[in-house]
Design a protein around this nucleic acid. Structure first.
Lengths: 338, 338
DNA sequence: TTGACTCTTGTAACTAGTTACATGCAATAA
DNA sequence: TTATTGCATGTAACTAGTTACAAGAGTCAA
């Protein structure tokens, strides 16, 4: 606590003055220490310590033209899938010495533009977003500023931005085929909100496109354990009978599993339950959840790598298609011949 | 694509030149548009549009002395509790027009300092960290730079930094008392890694301090569904018998529930399972999980509010104690008199 | 002794904005 | 007609660093 109670942080000029050198020399101590004699270096270092000097990030950024910050726009973090995704992004970006600012959009395109604008405002050098359905304002913003943006969670080579993701249609079809192969013919499909969500719509479109000889009943639910439980409870109440429940997200599948157990229905003996995504916990539920594995963490690091390379090389990266894989476990089984 | 292929982004000087005004006027169009005549404003705006001018965040920051960025250091995002926590922080900070940079520490104090240093480097105006156990280097960094830091997940009025959290000792004791009240006398305690984790240690200390006439067997597991399943499988294999399983985290409790079901043990008839935290999904498991509610989202927004106020007013906030509450559900029941 | 060279340091011009102050002009009041 | 006032705008000095270039000192060889 010094009596002068200097209101402001010390800057390089203060350090230089105290050390009796020029700002240039003080700057060199920070950036090319070997170019300064040991004596001078020590004096400057002492001044830095005494004045508690911390270099200004903004001033550095203004010179380098780089902030080393990127933005990740995710629908929510209150869902294991996006949390895992962000975790992977953060880890990979740390490798490239880039920091990640999070912004949640709640799946609202208006909030998305607003937060994207804010990210640009604080100097983000690139963005990672979910899906390819964005507001015109968002697309205009991206085009106007020419900021590197990677769209994730889907693979769309034709889209204006590079995508890193999987084929949602095919993944959903893979799940449905598995159930159909197991002779299921009346299947309840539990999906997340389709509004403003191209991934959900792609998955549903995939199911419809297969055109197999099965009855598919669609039910929408919030992608939370609670949402799934409520939806399943409603389905059961309605008296509709299905031999299998296809959940277009593992979170929904887990909630469905709980609700079915609570209502005394045995999985898979009475109802098969199938997920999509394959979260790490899905192999540990009782019974373990059959699912289609989408590599969410891999997607996060690939998206991060792609964005980092775009920023470094100024060359937009190629789209990345991640494979989906059927992971059969105990929650599905063949329908017994009556 | 213009032929000159200007390598660099346009700056305010370019805009001013193109519009035939001074930089000051151009700057006014951005910051106090009413102080500029409509004619001039239009001309400047056209220049801005034509040159695709985007103001430099760094230059703005260098003048205001503010970056409007704060850092959140969390152990991992691959755990619902921290993801929810971060979600709440982000939402609250958006309210204060502050952006949140995430950094995961993996519970490693060395990584924590390194990432904290990086956050300061990019100009974070404040930090939110978990717990009060940090490396000396971290504490030195905080003291040297005098950056506002809020410590969360615990309530320690005596700690050097303001804390926002709950009384972990008391919360664990509340859980244990519930089981003891239900006549459980042989209890397995499943806890996360105690190394480098003061919250876990506080919870364990709380249990030990109660000194009730019960046998407590401690088992450590990774705080994941998988970790809990493996630990419970080992306990069962070992032949040790307990009438109740006290999990010091709901994630562990959920995994335990799965593993017990898989091994055919009925919850709560044969084993009671008790959690701690009360995640939103905990009320939906089958059976629903008895837990002690810690208000994680509330903690996130309170911590964010506290940090924002510290940054705005330069006054460190008061510590915040969040209440814990017993939430009895179906996963625990009284031991039958033999 | 002089030229060539390296090493260290300083001067000053950058980076991209904001803003205090000055100035010019027009409209209104005395 | 002159003084007052307000608005619009420009000049230039800030913010906090980096860095190209110049210059001085010291070492070494011819």
């Amino acid at each position: 606590m010094d009596l002068t109670s200097r209101k402001k942080r010390a800057n390089l000029r203060d350090v230089a003055r105290k050390a009796g050198v020029s700002v240039a020399t003080a700057s060199r101590v920070l950036n090319m220490p070997t170019a300064v004699s040991a004596k001078t270096r020590d004096r400057v270092q002492s001044a830095i310590d005494e004045l508690r000097f911390v270099p200004s990030a903004a001033a550095r950024a203004i010179n380098s033209g780089r902030t080393r910050v990127i933005g990740a726009l995710v629908p929510t973090l209150d869902n294991a899938i996006f949390a895992r995704f962000l975790d992977a992004i953060e880890n990979e970006m740390a490798q490239h010495a880039l920091s990640v600012v999070v912004a949640t959009t709640n799946n609202d395109p208006e909030i998305e533009v607003e937060k994207a604008r804010n990210l640009l405002d604080i100097g983000a050098e690139g963005l990672i977003v979910s899906g390819v359905a964005h507001s015109p304002a968002f697309e205009a913003l991206v085009q106007k500023t020419r900021i590197p943006v990677i769209a994730t969670s889907c693979y769309e080579p034709a889209y204006a931005l590079p995508t890193v993701g999987y084929d949602n249609r095919a993944a959903a079809q893979m799940a449905l085929r598995h159930l159909v192969d197991l002779k299921h013919r009346r299947i309840a499909v539990l999906h997340g909100p389709a509004f403003n969500n191209d991934r959900t719509r792609a998955r549903l479109a995939g199911l419809q496109a297969l055109d197999l000889d099965v009855q598919l009943d669609l039910y929408e639910a919030d992608i939370t354990i609670a949402g799934a439980c409520q939806a399943v409870a409603k389905i059961l109440e309605s008296g509709a009978r299905h031999s299998a429940l296809l959940c277009l997200s593992d979170v929904l599948a887990m909630g469905a599993l709980f609700e079915l157990q609570r209502s005394g229905l045995s999985v898979p003996d009475e109802v098969s339950v199938m997920g999509l995504e394959d979260l790490p916990s899905s192999s540990y539920t009782a019974p373990a959840l059959t699912s289609v594995r989408l590599q969410v963490s891999e997607m996060g690091s690939r998206a991060a790598k792609a964005l980092a390379s775009w920023i470094e090389t100024a060359e937009p990266p190629e789209p990345v298609l991640l494979a989906a894989e059927l992971i059969p476990r105990q929650s599905t089984k063949a329908v017994e011949p009556a």
